[in-house]
Design a protein around this nucleic acid. Structure first.
Lengths: 345, 345
DNA sequence: TTGTAAGCGTTATCAT
DNA sequence: ATGATAACGCTTACAA
């Protein structure tokens, strides 16, 4: 390994100025006890000597790292990278750094990441759990050790903590209601894994709207899968092969909605004329497809900001008992071409 | 601040077993000097006592943090989040954590981030510089202090380091050649800030192809801006208002290409029939727009992996003199609808 | 307002 | 194969 250059320490500065290291430390930290004169002198010399504080040593001593750990399923995903961006935004402005790991929806990796973050003594953790995650001991570690933990999006009921979610139920409810208002009666739903609350809520919002409208929902019109590109195609194919006479599809994400649209187009089925399609999440592509995809907008960046704010507040608060809150972020229904009935039947 | 629970240390384990802390340390680190029996005993007790190694203390002592700093203009951007994802992938598998900051293309922030990362004693740094960045002292700090530094995409000529770039010149050259093959003669170019090499290279690739084909390029047909949504519209408007008779536009990114397409559509101009349009970067939306956007694919995830590999290799290598390499990643020309001439003129 | 000294948890050197 | 001890660079009582 390349030898790192020897670093200037506060002791070097102290020796040079014939003062004590504690004075140097205080001066550099703007401790008000230190006189203006010495402070200035010390800072000047520190600059000249190329002094760089060793945050590591300070963190070690104070047991505060000013480091926030973030665990997401996949960094390279519009929603998650938006949230991360929001987290970084707040964190940076509050003097925190952000360490990021992706679980790849793999339970083992998620567990290892949690352990590593703990060992690194992060001041707090922000998590959105993976698809496989059904036990939570690896995350309980944090509250047990008094390390603040905030969940977002894919949250965990079993752990008491601040949570930032979007109004999945309400969003799905409004989606479905809109489809019904457009005249749809036989609406299919392609949902995600129900062990994730978000997909469970979307399903429930869907069912609620259907029920309120007095519409029956055949079991066969509800399909749950992993919501990847291929899953969307597979689900749609399954629906079409059964020859179910559907007039609308509510997909639990935009990727699936797009897959559905492309597949149906190939079958010569017109969207939205023959079948209405809606998604969820508002991916960047949804606005520019043909037809553009009606969907539900989730404020990712804002959610990241809120998560970071709550986390940092909890980190810096003295309260021994925290009053945990679940922030339900409002969603926005974006009605675009894929769900707007042009002609009456 | 909430009091953190007192942690079990190797000394606690040592006391409990009536052995020395060094033995415990060695055992936990699988030092071969320790006998199998004691190692097992120690690990068992460590587990029972809920011991969690304090990475901070170890890093402090060994001056190795196993932490990699990543600086990008914007986390929430498909290309960058792909690269980050690739970096995390390799880093995780090699036992490194990844700290991420976004400069927001702001020079001041970029400078502060660099300083913070240094103070945190990251083992190495991976950087893609911001649009405003024209001086590099804040980055030279790393090589000066023997901290490995790897650039990607938006690299810096003035600093000797490993660099991962895409073949911007070649990509732009092939784009232009393709447009010419489709019959275009008066091709406009909407480029990015030329202080960024990538945009300079794309411009040069464009010019080279034009020149080779014996086509003249009017200065007024080349516009440089920041390549955001609005810039694209503004640039296109400028071109159209001048009533330049263009038959193709090569945009230095897909966002601008999309803006151009939307704006031209509104003017009643048909893409690709009247004007061919091409982008660069292959954003997720480009495949699904109407018309789909011809573009150049950059292997973001792979670039991140390569960057991390080179960085970690440099971190762990003993070589005092590194033979810096610039990895030029091949691009892939994606010919889609926006550049495929359907009818002959 | 400044100095002294202990200590954070680990690793590494030198003994044994 | 194991132990004793110093050291990493900083902060923080406590003392002056």
């Amino acid at each position: 390994m390349m030898a790192k250059q020897a670093e200037t320490t506060i002791h070097d500065i102290a020796k040079y100025l014939n003062i004590s290291a504690s004075t140097v430390s205080r001066a550099l930290n703007d401790n008000p006890l230190i006189s203006e004169a010495t402070r200035k002198k010390i800072k000047k010399v520190a600059g000249e000597m190329g002094y760089r504080p060793n945050t590591l040593a300070a963190s070690f001593r104070t047991k505060r790292t000013y480091n926030i750990g973030v665990i997401v399923p996949l960094i390279n995903r519009h929603f998650f990278s938006s949230v991360i961006s929001g987290i970084e935004d707040i964190a940076y402005n509050q003097g925190y750094t952000v360490s990021i790991s992706q679980s790849n929806d793999n339970f083992i990796k998620e567990t290892k990441i949690a352990k590593t973050m703990f060992n690194n003594r992060v001041d707090g953790v922000i998590v959105s759990i993976g698809m496989e995650t059904k036990s939570f001991e690896h995350l309980k570690l944090f509250p047990e050790k008094n390390i603040p933990l905030v969940f977002f999006d894919r949250v965990v009921d079993e752990i008491d903590a601040h949570k930032i979610v979007v109004d999945d139920f309400g969003g799905a409810y409004r989606v479905t209601k809109h489809l019904i208002e457009q005249g749809a009666k036989r609406i299919a739903h392609i949902g995600g894994p129900v062990n994730l609350k978000i997909y469970d809520h979307r399903r429930k919002g869907f069912l609620k709207a259907m029920q309120e409208a007095g519409l029956k929902t055949k079991k066969s019109l509800i399909i749950h899968n992993s919501l990847r590109k291929d899953d969307g195609v597979a689900a749609i194919r399954k629906l079409m092969e059964k020859n179910e006479k559907i007039d609308a599809i509510f997909c639990a994400n935009d990727t699936t909605a797009l897959s559905a649209i492309i597949y149906l187009k190939e079958l010569g089925i017109k969207i939205p004329d023959d079948i209405l399609v809606m998604g969820f999440s508002n991916e960047p592509f949804s606005e520019v497809t043909t037809p553009s995809i009606s969907t539900v907008k989730q404020p990712g960046f804002l959610m990241g900001q809120k998560a970071a704010e709550l986390l940092i507040h909890q980190i810096t608060s003295n309260d021994t008992k925290v009053n945990y809150q679940t922030l339900v972020m409002p969603t926005e229904l974006l009605i675009r071409e894929s769900s707007r009935r042009n002609k009456t039947d």
